[in-house]
C-alpha cells in the first residue's frame, strides 16, 4: 500500500494551490509515497522528552526601534507585478 493515496495527494495539491491533472496524480502519488517511506525511518527513534529544534541558533529574536528606515518603494515593487493599474495589483474579480 502506498504511504499516501491519490485522494490525499489531490487534497494536498488543493491546499498548496497547485493545479493537478488526473494523469499527474498517479505520478505524484508514487513519488510522494517513496519520499514518505524514506521519511518513516525517523519514526523508529525514541524522542520522548526531546525538545524540538526549530533553529540552529540558541538566541533570542532581536528587536529594532519602530521607525521608517527606507523610503517608499511601492512604484519599484509594483513594476514587477504581472498586471497593475493605478498602482494596484489586478486580479480576477472576486466579488460579483
Amino acid at each position: 500500500m502506498s504511504a499516501i493515496t491519490p485522494d490525499e495527494v489531490a487534497k494536498v495539491a488543493h491546499l498548496a494551490r497547485i493545479a493537478m491533472s488526473d494523469d499527474k496524480l498517479s505520478e505524484y502519488t508514487q513519488s510522494l509515497s517513496s519520499t514518505l517511506e524514506l521519511v518513516q525511518q525517523m519514526q523508529q527513534v525514541d524522542t520522548k522528552g526531546v525538545t524540538p529544534m526549530a533553529h540552529p541558533l540558541d538566541t533570542i529574536q532581536p528587536q529594532r526601534s519602530d521607525h521608517v528606515t527606507e523610503g517608499d518603494f511601492s512604484k519599484a515593487i509594483n513594476q514587477m507585478a504581472p498586471k497593475i493599474e493605478a498602482n494596484l495589483f489586478l486580479v480576477p474579480q472576486v466579488i460579483e
Binding site: A16, R17, I18, A19, I77, M80, A81, P82, K83, F89, V91, P92, Q93, V94
Partner: peptide, 21 residues
Amino acid sequence: VRYGYRCENPKDLLDLYKRTR
C-alpha cells in the same frame, strides 16, 4: 499577483493561483 509568472486567462482567483503555480 505581485511578481513573477502569471498564467494566461485565469477564470477566477483560485484558478489564477493554481495554474500559475
